[in-house]
């Protein structure tokens, strides 16, 4: 993957305004930057956490990349299922 820095970060947004995280949440900011750095080339797996809350409540989500919410212990097991499939 080529180097990405603050200047070359894409202008495209992968988060939408109006999520339920606390004002000033570092997770929200970090997630925004991570998705920009990946330029949206990501499928996200989320355990029960603030990230779940960021992703929102059914049927609306604040995130414009595909995502699967899972129970705690199965977060890391999404990848072995997706990769071969």
């Amino acid at each position: 993957m080529s180097q990405v820095n603050a200047v070359s970060l894409t202008e495209k947004e992968y988060l939408l305004p109006g999520n339920r995280l606390c004002p000033g949440c570092a997770l929200s900011l970090a997630y925004r930057h991570i998705l920009k750095a990946l330029d949206g080339r990501a499928i996200i797996t989320v355990p029960a956490s603030c990230l779940t809350v960021l992703h929102g409540m059914y049927p609306v989500t604040s995130v414009t990349v595909p995502c699967v919410n899972t129970p705690f212990a199965s977060v890391q097991h999404q990848l072995p299922g997706w990769w071969p499939a």
Partner: peptide, 20 residues
């Protein structure tokens, strides 16, 4: 799971119906 048509699965669902 298609980045061209992103969906999120199994988000928290509220007690009452909600508009998308």
């Amino acid at each position: 799971l298609d980045p061209g048509n992103p969906k999120n699965y199994n988000l928290v669902t509220l007690a009452n119906p909600r508009a998308n």
